[in-house]
Design a protein around this nucleic acid. Structure first.
Lengths: 241, 241
DNA sequence: TCAAAAGTGTTGTACTTACACCCATGT
DNA sequence: ACATGGGTGTAAGTACAACACTTTTGA
C-alpha cells in the first residue's frame, strides 16, 4: 500500500444479457449457442466484451442487444442485475461480467438471416427442469434475473414491458402467470389491476378475439410503483417456516 | 468482430463500501476523507482496487472493510449493490466499481490509532441535507445503498444486523425508525414483529435500562424473509400518484 | 342455444391502525 | 407517588380470496 509504483491489476469487462419475452404463453429467454471454446456447443446468455475504453457499460449492453438479438435498447426495459466476478468463472482470464435484465414484448420474429441468427428463444420451464445446461455461471445469472423480474412484477409496472400497447387485462394476466409460474383468478386480477390508479389507462376500444365477449384495451399509465403490490401466490408456500 | 487479433480493452476494478451502523439513534455511514487527488479533502466511501489478479471481488470488499474500517467481514452482513462504470466517473482512468452494502452493529469504537484512522461515522441526515459533498459518484451509490437497506428491512430480517444479540424489541424499533426516517407505534410494532414466527426467539431474560419496566431479550431466529412484510409508513405519501 | 371469455357482486376472513389500558421498574 | 418505558386488549377500517352470477360475443 505504501508502494507508490503499485498499479491495480487490469481485468476484462463483459456484459451479459438476460432477455425475457412471452411466447406461446410461456416465459422465454434468449440464448445463443456457443460456436467457440470454451463451452463450445453449449448455450449461453448473449453478451460480449466492452468495445473500447470509452464505451459506457450500459451502452455495451445496448449494443449487444442489437448485435446478438436485433433488438433496440431504446424500446426495451433494461436494468442492471449486478456484477459477477469470481476468479475462474471464465477460463480465458479474469473477466468481470456486468449482467443486465431486458424485457421485450413479443415482436414479429426478428432473428432470421441476421447477425442474431444463432440466437434462440428457450422456454424457462426447459431450463428450470435442467434439460438445458448453460455455459459459465450463466445459470446463476439467469436465476437472479428471473427472481428480479418476479419481484418487480409485484411492485412495479414492469409486466407491461412484455406487452405491446394496447393490451387487454388478460394479456397482462398471462404475463403474471408465465413469470410467476402460478395461476391467478381472472376476476380478482381484473379488479386489482384496475384499482391501482395510474397503472392502466383505458383506450376506449375493444378487441375481439374469436369467441367470448370483447375485452377493453389499455395503455400503460404514468405510475411505475404499484400500490398496493400484487403479491404472488407462490410466496404463500414460503410463508410457513 | 471478425478480427481474430482484437482484444477487449482492460479496465481497473475497484470496490466501494456503503457501511451503515446505528449510533445515537441515528443511521450513520462510514466515510473517509480523501488524502490525495482527485477530490482531495472531500469525503468518499471506503474502497479500493482489486489487490491482484486472483482476488475475488467480494473478498476485496472484505479486505477493504478490514483495512479501512477495522471490521471483520465474517461478522457482518455484506451484499452487492451493483456495478458503476460510467466513463469519466474517475478522472484517473477507466475504473469500474462494484459497490457493496455492509451493515455493522454498534461496536466498541474501532477506529482510533489504526489504519482506519481517517474513517469517520457521518449521520445520514447530514448527507441528505447536502451538508456534505461526496467524491466521484458516491452520492448516488450511497442513495442506492440506503434505498436497498430500507427495502430489505421490510421483507427480511436485515434489521437485526444492526443489533448485537441479545436485543430488545425497542432496540429493533430504533433501527427501523432510523433507517426509514419514520416514527412507529411501539405497541403495534411490538406485536407485529413477534407475530412473525421464526423471526425473534426469546432468550428468557430481561434487560433493565434505568427507569421503566424491564424489556424481554431476543436473539434472531432462523427466518430470513418476513411474512407479512413490515411496510414502511413513508410509502404512504407515495401511494397517491 | 351453447360455450367461452369479460366483467360485477358479495361474503367471510385476515390484517392493520389507533388508542385505551394495565404492568413493572427507578427515582 | 409518579414518570417512564414495556406490554395487552379491542374496535373500526381496509384488503383480499373465493366463488356465484351477469354480459357479450362467435359458432
Amino acid at each position: 500500500m505504501a508502494d507508490d509504483h503499485w498499479t491495480p491489476p487490469p481485468v476484462l469487462l463483459a456484459v451479459d444479457l438476460v432477455i425475457f419475452t412471452l411466447r406461446e404463453s410461456a416465459l422465454q429467454v434468449l440464448l445463443v449457442e456457443r460456436g467457440i471454446e470454451p463451452f463450445k456447443g453449449a448455450f449461453a446468455l448473449p453478451g460480449g466484451f466492452l468495445a473500447d475504453e470509452n464505451e459506457d457499460v450500459v451502452a455495451a449492453a445496448g449494443r449487444e442487444l442489437y448485435e446478438e438479438a436485433a433488438l433496440d435498447a431504446a424500446e426495451l426495459h433494461l436494468e442492471q442485475l449486478g456484477a459477477y466476478g469470481t476468479p475462474g468463472r471464465d477460463p480465458r482470464g479474469r473477466v468481470i461480467s456486468v449482467a443486465y435484465l431486458a424485457i421485450a414484448p413479443r415482436l414479429p420474429e426478428p432473428q432470421a438471416g441476421t447477425d442474431a441468427a444463432r440466437a434462440v428463444w428457450v422456454p424457462m420451464p426447459e431450463i428450470l427442469d435442467r434439460r438445458i445446461r448453460l455455459a459459465f455461471d450463466h445459470e446463476q445469472i439467469l436465476k437472479e434475473g428471473l427472481e428480479r423480474a418476479r419481484a418487480k412484477l409485484e411492485s412495479t409496472s414492469l409486466a407491461t414491458a412484455f406487452c405491446t400497447s394496447p393490451f387487454t387485462i388478460s394479456d397482462l394476466q398471462q404475463v403474471y402467470e408465465a413469470v410467476w409460474g402460478a395461476e391467478l383468478d381472472p376476476r380478482n386480477f381484473y379488479r386489482k389491476v384496475q384499482a391501482i390508479d395510474g397503472f392502466l389507462v383505458p383506450v376506449g376500444e375493444e378487441r375481439r378475439a374469436g369467441r367470448g365477449r370483447p375485452a377493453r384495451l389499455f395503455h400503460v399509465g404514468e405510475r411505475v410503483t404499484l400500490w398496493p403490490p400484487l403479491v404472488r401466490p407462490a410466496i404463500a408456500a414460503e410463508r410457513e417456516q
